[in-house]
């Protein structure tokens, strides 16, 4: 059974159809890349998978291990193992990062019927992960993303991903705003999570990221559809020739 199956998905935002029948199948262990011009619907797809309100699914299905994802609340999806690293992570003043991480991790574990982490175990885990991602401890004392630089916010998303150990990781433009060193560290973090049981969907505009996180399959999205899929060489092709060739196909 596929880990994620998006079938003929049609989505509207404020009366306007953004996704016009999108298909995507992701199996355990695979790394997928989604590329496509601005406004082609990449973030919309990721939001609908995560369960963000404001999107109307008018047709199609999203199955996660065969279960209807669209029937689940966002927190349920998270507990089942869906994780979206946001393109624009929000700032949450007054909610300390540490408290947030622990509350979220334990909420997911509780929903899955697992025991909650003890404080020392939790702290140990956070320390390990944040160290490997080069995230200073005092950043974790601040409000969630409050005053974080663009790159720090992205690293904080990868940190959460590493902590929650989801089975499907969707990374929406993780590379935007990261300097070259930070990109390498974040990509290493993502690669470290890669396992035969876990799949990654990497949304990006730049082939460069795919040198670090090497995809099995590259999809081109245009105007709300996947218009072409291929191997990692497709990314190089896009880098050379741009999206113009696909505009008509859509």
């Amino acid at each position: 059974m596929a880990l994620l199956e998006v079938k003929d998905l049609k989505v509207r935002v404020e009366e306007r159809e953004i996704l016009h029948g999108l298909n995507l199948t992701v199996n355990e262990g695979e790394i997928h890349a989604i590329m496509g011009p601005n406004g082609s619907g990449k973030s919309t797809l990721s939001h609908v998978i995560a369960g963000k309100p404001g999107y109307e699914v008018t047709d199609g299905q999203i199955l996660f291990r065969g279960e209807d994802l669209l029937e689940m609340s966002p927190d349920m999806r998270a507990a089942k193992g869906v994780f979206l690293a946001f393109q624009y992570p929000v700032e949450i003043p007054g909610v300390a990062t540490m408290n947030f991480l622990r509350t979220a991790l334990n909420a997911q574990r509780k929903a899955r019927g697992e025991s909650e982490y003890s404080t020392p175990d939790f702290l140990k885990k956070v320390r390990e992960v944040s160290k490997s991602l080069n995230i200073p401890q005092d950043m974790l004392k601040r409000g969630v993303n409050v005053g974080f630089s663009g790159g720090e916010k992205k690293r904080n998303e990868v940190l959460q991903m590493a902590l929650f150990e989801p089975s499907l990781c969707i990374l929406d433009e993780m590379d935007s705003g990261l300097d070259i060193d930070a990109l390498r560290i974040a990509a290493d973090g993502v690669n470290a999570l890669h396992s035969p049981k876990r799949a990654m969907v990497v949304i990006t505009h730049y082939q460069r990221l795919l040198n670090y996180i090497v995809p099995d399959i590259v999809h081109v999205m245009s105007k709300g559809r996947v218009v072409k899929s291929g191997g990692k060489e497709l990314a190089l092709e896009l880098e050379a020739s741009g999206y113009a060739q696909f505009e008509d196909a859509a």
Partner: peptide, 28 residues
């Protein structure tokens, strides 16, 4: 709503997500 969604997308049920944001508000 966007803060609530972020918290829910990280696994917090609605009530718990609200509670964190209310605590932040009163916390000030």
């Amino acid at each position: 709503d966007s803060l609530l969604f972020y918290l829910k997308a990280r696994g917090l049920p609605e009530k718990q997500a609200q509670a964190l944001l209310i605590q932040a508000f009163v916390g000030e």
